[in-house]
Amino acid sequence: MSTVIATPKPGKPWTATPQQRLITASIYLGAVLVSFTLVAITPMKGKLAYFVVFFFSSLLIDFILSYIQRGMASAKDAIARGFVSVGMTLAVLPIFSILFEVVKRGYKGLNINLFTKDMSLTSVNDPIGNGGLIHAITGTIIMVAMALIVAMPIGILTAIYLTEIRGKFAAPIKFLVQAMSGVPSIVAGLFILSAYVYPITGALSGFAGSLALMILMIPTIARTSEEVLLLIPNDLREAGVALGGTQWRTVALVVVPAAKSGLVTALILGIARVAGETAPLVLLTGGGEKVNLNPFDGPMGSLPIYIWKCFGQGTEESIARAWSGILVLLVIVLALFISARFLSERKVAK
């Protein structure tokens, strides 16, 4: 009698059995029941009351069940798990509700004119199909691009100073860069207003706006690039120098190429940081209604200003325009973040 030993079926013995799932489900069911009962019989009212009662009762039931089944350590684990999940929920709830609200209110205003026309011939009460925000899109792109052209080398060179050269001033500069990333954007705007606009040009312009954006962008790029460069193993620097390279050539040929995708991420985060900045642009750009491709002359529109103005006008049409503007801005920023994530993940895959 030959017994054929069959290959066992692949499974996941560590996952929850139906019985365990039933227990988990009943914990939540119980908590729901408790919250309904308590809200009904006590003076507590509203969504918040449901949420709070549900949270604490599910935590309590989970705690007791875990204690009975597996002891105190497991019960504490259940408590920690409960708080972590509620923290996560509270963190993502606003994000999703913002997205939901923006899409709900903004999509109605979407039409092709948004991307082909400006607001120079449109008044506040015109229907939403009249006029568009091409002047704002071009303005934002020009100002952010100009800020990036200056902030990119400054930010990355600062990071290289902090991680590669590690000179005497590394510690104070690191501190300053961190402090600078906390500078309120209105302060950057006022600084450019008093240091550039009043004494030099005397007129508002897109360039003045991009200077303020640059001030806000540098610390973001410098800090992110620093983190990225710190991840490059020291072995590579030593290998480069041991091959007879000077420090500069080692940094340029070995360290920076190895960190390239991370540095691209740093730039995109820098762009995303300033793309929605409003306060300094209100002070500095004049916020025109017409497409203006010359940043050195005349007022320049931008998406945040467009949104801010439209809300200020207060008519039904202009508020709808504002929501469409928010949607466009959000999509641009989201696209940047997704591409940043994509680029940094590709680095890990290598």
Binding site: A239, L243, G245, V254
Partner: peptide, 23 residues
Amino acid sequence: FQKPNPFPSMSIAENVLSGLKLA
């Protein structure tokens, strides 16, 4: 070195010839 440390941004050929570029 103790741990193999080829330059990650370079191909095999570029790695071998990297010393020429560095120096």
